[in-house]
């Protein structure tokens, strides 16, 4: 068997994660009454077996073209993007939706290369006010409120 190359690694990791998750959920569902457990456990079993087959298939094929290629963006930038999203969501929970959205739009734009502050601040304020008018005022649906707003 060929060595697991860099391009193959993500598929291998995902297959292993799916196998582990399938086993964990099967163990969790084993305590349920048979009628309720039968269908989800059968599905989990199939997902687990197919993940094993995909894992073996990927290893046998060696370097997999579709796994590691075709997306030029760097892992660091993607992780930064996801972290920014997570920080924003935590801010929504703590500060409130409107305040964190007003801050997030210019800050995230700047973090990813758009640093025309006056434009992004103006756009952010306009967009946040529009959302407020639409949801809180017109539709009467409240978005998350927090320390600031």
């Amino acid at each position: 068997m060929k060595a697991i190359s860099k391009g193959l690694m993500p598929t291998v990791v995902v297959c292993i994660a799916l196998i582990v998750a399938s086993i964990a959920f099967i163990v969790m569902g084993a305590g349920l009454p048979l009628a309720s457990a039968m269908f989800p456990l059968a599905v989990l079993g199939v997902v687990g077996v197919l993940s094993v087959v995909l894992l073996v298939q990927s290893c046998l094929q060696g370097r997999q073209r579709e796994g590691g290629e075709g997306h030029p963006e760097s892992l660091g930038k993607v992780v930064l993007g996801l972290l920014c999203v997570l920080v924003y969501l935590v801010a929504v929970a703590r500060l409130g939706f409107y305040a964190s959205t007003f801050l997030m739009i210019p800050l995230m734009s700047a973090a990813f290369g758009y640093r025309r502050w006056e434009r992004s601040l103006f756009g952010s304020a306009l967009f946040t006010v529009m959302l407020y008018l639409l949801f809180d005022m017109a539709m009467g649906r409240s978005l998350p409120h927090g320390w600031l707003m």
């Binding site: 924003y88 969501l89 939706f97 995230m108 734009s109 290369g113 758009y114 992004s120 649906r141 998350p144």
Partner: peptide, 27 residues
């Protein structure tokens, strides 16, 4: 600019997920 566009869509995603049951769990 794409970063500005991405940020705006992100906030719409939060609105969309939150609106279903009005809970941050869904977000």
């Amino acid at each position: 600019p794409r970063p500005l566009l991405g940020s705006i869509i992100l906030s719409l995603m939060v609105v969309g997920a939150y609106s279903i049951h009005e809970t941050l769990f869904d977000v």
